[in-house]
């Protein structure tokens, strides 16, 4: 229910917040753009999306516009952020399109002036206003959740946790896996929300439960499916769903306290070496076609209002979610990492 969060975040930017927004004029996807993109022949896409979604999406784009190769550069959102920082500092310009599961990163990049505005006419038409940066520097590509989940072979539904508080029960000690906010934007965003809602002492107690500490929010679903741990404290909901739909003994839990919600903004770098291909890719991903592809493949929540939620998945409105607050995440990120490392030792 917190769809307005991104817009709010942008408006609350310390600088330029009250300046009349300079939204770029919407551009049609012209043959000239496609030709220019093909001439560039490639586009580099930095993302935190799981490879099982990102690579097929890239291949679908390549199939739609033959002659353009997509290089998918996937890592945890926090790693991507760090890498881009290092590359920019060393004047290495490789990233064309960037997509992060930590919306706070876009606040930082916008402030640095690294992003290029872009809005296709389809985006202007089909994206709700709260999904787009007022200056047109980025838009929300999709939204997903970080949910609790459990392995039904290892835990009977009756014994399953109902929410975060249950996870502190000694019976789950040594049986949980969770991602790391220093690596994953999903976990970073979720950690900010949980610490706000439940307080840091919650994590202090959770850290004593002998949690298997993995890095990416995409790994707990894989560990759960393999049966390595019975309960996932967090992780990308769409991967739990996909495993469940594949017949794996995985069940999602929407915590009674609320479920962290994560928007995944996407933008184009000013220094992009392939600006036309970058624009073409963004326009395609945000188009009905691109959004449908993501939804059909993974069941994440689309930003494009023409595209419906995947059948069988609950609508966002039905889920009690925490409020997303990228501005707070941006301010607190270093402190969150330090606090987390203090409790979890890594």
């Amino acid at each position: 229910m917190q769809r307005r969060s991104l817009l709010t975040a942008s408006l609350l930017l310390p600088l330029g917040a009250r300046v009349v927004s300079a939204a770029p004029a919407a551009e049609p996807v012209t043959t000239a753009l496609v030709e220019a993109a093909k001439k560039e022949g490639k586009v580099t896409y930095y993302t935190a999306m799981d490879l099982s979604v990102a690579e097929p999406m890239a291949k679908a784009f390549e199939a739609r516009y033959p002659g353009i190769k997509v290089a998918v550069e996937r890592s945890g959102a926090e790693r991507v952020f760090n890498r881009i920082g290092q590359e920019m500092a060393s004047k290495i310009h490789r990233v064309d399109v960037v997509n992060s599961s930590d919306a706070a990163h876009f606040i930082s990049w916008k402030r640095e002036g690294w992003l290029a505005p872009y809005l296709s006419d389809e985006m202007a038409r089909d994206l709700p206003a709260e999904m787009v940066d007022p200056d047109g520097l980025f838009c929300n590509q999709r939204t997903h959740l970080s949910t609790i989940a459990y392995n039904t072979k290892l835990i009977a539904p009756a014994d399953a946790p109902k929410g975060f508080a249950d996870l502190l029960d000694p019976k789950y000690a040594g049986k949980m896996v969770k991602g790391h906010p220093g690596y994953s934007g999903t976990i970073m965003t979720a950690t900010q929300q949980i610490s706000r809602e439940l307080g840091w002492p919650y994590f202090e107690k959770l850290a004593k439960q002998k949690v298997l500490q993995v890095q990416s929010a995409t790994e707990p679903p894989k560990r759960l499916e393999a049966g390595e741990r019975a309960v996932a404290v967090d992780g990308s909901d769409y991967l739990f769903w996909l495993a469940k739909e594949r017949g794996a003994p995985v069940e999602l839990v929407f915590a009674v306290e609320g479920t962290p919600q994560i928007s995944n903004p996407m933008g184009i770098f000013k220094s992009s070496p392939n600006p036309s291909a970058a624009r073409l890719m963004v326009s395609w991903i945000m188009s009905g076609e691109g959004q449908s592809f993501i939804v059909n493949l993974s069941g994440q929540y689309p930003a494009n209002k023409q595209v419906k939620v995947k059948p069988g998945r609950p609508a966002l409105a039905q889920i009690k979610t925490f409020k997303e607050d990228p501005v707070a995440v941006e301010k607190q990120a270093d402190q969150i990492k330090a606090q987390y490392a203090k409790y979890f030792k890594v």
Binding site: D50, L51, R74, S75, G76, R79, Y183, V214, Q215, S216, T218, E219, K222, R223
Partner: peptide, 11 residues
């Protein structure tokens, strides 16, 4: 190592 961090052990 990257794949390890996202748990893609098959690859």
């Amino acid at each position: 190592f990257d794949l390890k961090e996202s748990g893609d052990v098959g690859a």
